[in-house]
Amino acid sequence: MVIRFFVCVSLVLCAICCFGQVDVDKMRAEYATAVQNKKLCEANLKLLEGAANSATEKGYLAAYEILWAKHMGNPFTKLGQFKKGKKLLEEMIMKYPDNIDLRFIRWSVQTHAPSFLSYSKDRLRDKEYLVHNLHKLPNPKGREVIYTYLKEANSYLKGDHVFSQAELNELSK
């Protein structure tokens, strides 16, 4: 009887621990796709709302909050949603300025944010930070996802925002 109790408790604790976790690699990999895929964006947002604990997880929560604004209809609701995600992202960057994922998220949001939102002042600083620090991200799969995103972004960037060949080489380390 006592053994059954401990087995049941162990299974419940295991289920709570395993099913409530965030797969950061998945969030990172699906980030670009979620811009166009409302269901994916909503599913990832809900998961992150319930389980984001680390700085990186909260950064992706902020990113998906911002992306969710794109899928909303009412302009006032969109703006409120965008501001909610932006606020969380900026709070996380203030606490963890050396978090590579946070700087990548802010760079990507500021690169794509409409100019009327006035959210672009950190793009060049974040670009430079990423060029010099992406190689420090301990996750090779994460480095590859971010590098691919940045490299592909070059096709629509202009001026100082374009990654030079030397910068792309530095990013690919």
Rank of each mutant, 00 (worst) to 15 (best):
C8L: 12
S115G: 14
M27V: 15
K86Y: 06
N133G: 03
E91M: 13
N37M: 04
F6A: 04
P114M: 06
L134W: 02
C41R: 00
A153R: 11
H71G: 06
D101I: 04
P140S: 03
D98C: 14
S10L: 12
H132P: 15
H135P: 08
Y147T: 02
P114S: 07
Y149R: 11
I3H: 10
L45D: 04
V145T: 00
S10I: 13
Y129N: 02
T111C: 07
L11G: 15
N44D: 10
I3S: 11
Q165V: 15
G20M: 07
N139R: 00
L48D: 10
R143W: 00
I100D: 01
H71R: 05
Q21L: 09
K38H: 13
R143L: 01
K86S: 09
M72T: 11
K141N: 05
F104W: 07
R106W: 03
A63I: 11
Q165H: 12
Y119A: 03
R123D: 12
D98V: 14
K46G: 12
Y96R: 12
E170V: 10
L134Q: 03
I105S: 01
Y96F: 15
K151S: 09
N154M: 04
V35T: 11
L79S: 12
A15D: 10
A69Q: 07
E90I: 14
G20Q: 09
R28M: 01
Y60D: 01
I16N: 11
Q21M: 12
R103S: 09
V145Q: 00
Y147N: 02
H132N: 12
S155L: 07
K58G: 05
K136M: 11
F82E: 00
E152S: 11
N139T: 01
E90G: 07
E30K: 07
D122Y: 15
E170Y: 10
G159M: 08
H161C: 12
K39N: 07
D25L: 05
E65N: 05
L171T: 00
C14R: 13
